Simulated scan of single mutants.
Amino acid sequence: MNTIVTTTNIMPADWRDFFTLTKPRVMTLVIFTGICGLLAAPGTIHPVIGFTAILAIALGAGGSAVLNQWWEADLDKGMKRTASRPLPDGRLRREDARDFGIFLSAVSVGLMGVAVGWLAAISLFAAIIYYAVIYTMWLKPRTPQNIVIGGGAGAFPPFIGWIAVTGEITAMPILLFAIIFMWTPPHFWALALFVKSDYAKVGIPMLPVVAGERATRQQIMIYTVLLAPIAIAPWLIGGTSWVYGSVAVVLSALFLMLAVPVLSEERQGADPLQPEKRLFKFSIVYLFALFAALVADRVLFANGLIGGGVFA
C-alpha cells in the first residue's frame, strides 16, 4: 500500500474540502451521461425514481473519486497539478477521506438497489470497484495500458441510467458503454502528453512516460479511428434515427481531423495551443454533444417528429 502522507499540521477541514474530494468537475460529465442514458432509454420512469437513480450515480462517482484520492494522496503531493488537493495540502486526514468515500459508495449502491432496482445497483457497485480498486490500486501504478482498461470505470453511467429505466441489458446500453470506453484513451492520452512530467516525477507509467510521445500519438490516432464506427453504431443498428446518426458522423469526422495534427506533431506557426491540447478540449465537447444528440433524438422520436429508430 502507498506510504502515508505526513504533514506537520492538519488544518481544520470544512464541507468544501469534502466536496472537492468528489471531483465535482468530473462528476458533471458522469451525471450528464447518466441522465442521457436514462432519458434516451425506451419506456418511462417516475421522475422521483429517475432523480434517485441519478443521485445514486452521483454519490457513487463521488465516493469512488474520494477513494481514488485517499489511495493516491502521496502521489498527488508530488504532482504540481494535484498538490493543492485537500489531502496532499494537509486540509484533511487521510482516514477521514477513506471513511467518507466508503460511506458515499455504500449509500449509493443501497439507494440504487432499494429505490430503483438491483441490476442497476450491481452495475453501480461494479463501476465503483472498477475505478477505486481495479484502476486506482491495480492498473494505474503498474501498466501504461491503465487508461485503456480503466476506461470502463467512466463508461458505466449511461449504461446504468439506461437499465434503471428498462431493467435489462440490451445492445444500446452496451454501445453507450463502448463509446465512452473507446473515447477515454485519446481523451486522457492527449492530456498526458502535456502533463507527462508530472506523471514521470511520481513514477506513474502513463504511456508517454513509458513508450514515448511518438507511440502515444499513434495510439491516440488508432483509438480515434476505432471510436468513430462505435459512435455511429447506435444509428446503424436502428437504435436511433438519422438525427443522432448525422451528429455522430460530423463529430467523429471533426475528432479525426483534430487527431491528425497530433499524430504528425504539426505546429501552426506561433499557435500557443498545441494540437494535443486542442484535441483534449474538443474531446470533452464531443462527448457532451454526442450524448445530447442521443437525448434529442429520443425526444423527437417519442413525440412522433421523426422516424427510423427502434430504440432497441
Rank of each mutant, 00 (worst) to 15 (best):
W138M: 15
G245H: 01
R94L: 11
I180A: 02
A231Q: 01
A248Q: 02
S241P: 05
A65P: 02
G37F: 00
A40R: 03
F177N: 01
T28F: 13
V250E: 08
Y223D: 01
Y244T: 03
E213M: 14
T216E: 06
P157F: 02
I10W: 12
F181K: 03
L305S: 13
R81P: 08
A190E: 06
S283R: 00
M27D: 09
D76F: 03
G309A: 14
V165Q: 03
L139H: 04
G212H: 08
G78Q: 10
G62D: 05
I230C: 05
Q218V: 11
G238T: 04
A153C: 08
P42H: 15
L191E: 02
S252L: 05
H187S: 03
S241K: 02
A233C: 09
I49T: 11
S64R: 05
F19L: 15
K140L: 06
Q274P: 07
P88Q: 07
I160V: 14
A73N: 05
Y131D: 04
H46S: 12
I163G: 00
R81L: 13
L175V: 05
V310E: 15
K281Q: 13
G37Y: 00
I204T: 10
T240G: 07
M79W: 10
D14C: 08
F103Q: 09
H187K: 09
G78M: 06
L92T: 02
T8Y: 11
D17S: 13
I204C: 08
G245D: 04
V202L: 09
